[in-house]
Design a binder for these strands. Structure first.
Lengths: 209, 209
DNA sequence: AAATTACAAAATTTCAAAATTATAGCTAAA
DNA sequence: TTTAGCTATAATTTTGAAATTTTGTAATTT
């Protein structure tokens, strides 16, 4: 793996997991010391991230983490509902027992983590586990839709969605609602009811609209 | 405007207007002579294009224009229908007389070009005009949807869609169908019939599914 | 006190050379 | 004839310095 790809993946992850603050200036000249490479290599990675919307680029003024924005969150939620509903519906239509098994497994893991969080309120060591399991659940939900493009686009939106919520994610205020919502989404998908699945996905995200 | 942005925009345009052939290797080392800048600057622009899906990047093997792919076109069409329908529906709901005026203007220009193309079969001088007008019509159709994110995502998909059709676009075989389809989309949108608009968009793109 | 100017420091952008890797062609051995 | 090994060439990746622009601060002017 090349240096640039290493830098890209590292920064990509930190952009959506509160590794940098909203609005923070990202200086290639500083990060090069941390990564032990040239500022040009960091700059390349930042350009890719800017195209993904995870960093804002302004000529001659460098790169900056996007601010939290109520409007951006609204738009991301709306588009995420659209994509995830379509992906889930197509997965219901095209998925097989294998998809159901994977979805149940993903849900099992996620609900296990969320229930632990809900009982103990021990937060910090679980955030990474929760983060990965939440993503895995939603991605598995659409994984049999038959379109890599839809999956990729959904991922792009999901990443930006997570970035907008990266501070709030760490308060864990959402957990009890999530347990219920994720269960409802799973049940609806397992029952093969497309409209119900779409409605449950919408309910899950409606508070951000 | 910086060099890199210049290079990016130039390459971006050529990626979707048959400036390079499907599957062609894109060498920064060669293009630097054309642009009169360093290969590193070209490489930066290519990284951005790769994130947009208009160029494929492979470590140590550089950049390549994506092949034509029946499957990719299918996925792009499906996703484009999804996004464009949603954008059109939201525009119908949220748009005002001003949106209708802009859409009628965009359609007028597009149909004028398409009719000329249909009558005279003079192709080459019109491709750029048609290209711009077709894009303008579809973008205007969704322009009052209230979501910059949806508009931006649609544009990204539309670009890739045009790349897949950039050779076929130059045969002009589609023109008479297009005249009819665009008119139907306009009429449906003007009538405020959401379901009909969605159906007409679907019909317009169904041959690529 | 507020606005403007000048200058130094910091940051950004670009460059082309060095380091590294892939590719192509040739030769020898099996 | 095929395969493996070697070498030269071409291309890719990375580097850090030079060129350019922005930012911050102090001094001056209004």
């Amino acid at each position: 793996m090349s240096y640039e790809t290493n830098v890209f993946e590292n920064l990509h992850h930190r952009m959506i997991t509160n590794g940098f603050e909203h609005g923070q200036k990202i200086r290639a000249e500083h990060l090069r010391k941390e990564f032990g490479c040239s500022a040009s290599t960091v700059r390349e990675a930042l350009f890719r991230l800017s195209t993904l919307g995870l960093v804002q680029f302004q000529e001659q003024r460098g790169f900056r983490v996007p601010q939290k924005s109520r409007n951006t969150l609204h738009e991301l939620s709306h588009l995420r509902i659209l994509l995830e509903s379509e992906g889930a519906i197509q997965s219901i239509r095209q998925g097989r027992v294998e998809w159901e098994a994977r979805l149940n497994a993903a849900h099992h893991q996620l609900s296990h983590i969320e229930k632990r969080l809900n009982e103990t309120q021990i937060s910090e060591p679980f955030i990474d586990l929760w983060f990965a399991a939440e993503r895995q659940f939603h991605e598995t939900l659409i994984s049999s839709c038959g379109s890599d493009l839809l999956i990729g686009t959904h991922r792009q939106i999901y990443d930006r969605f997570r970035q907008q919520l990266m501070v709030e994610d760490r308060t864990f205020n959402f957990v009890s609602d999530n347990i219920e919502h994720h269960q409802q989404i799973l049940d609806a998908a397992m029952s093969g009811d497309e409209a119900l699945t779409q409605m449950k996905i919408h309910n899950h995200l409606a508070r951000h609209l």
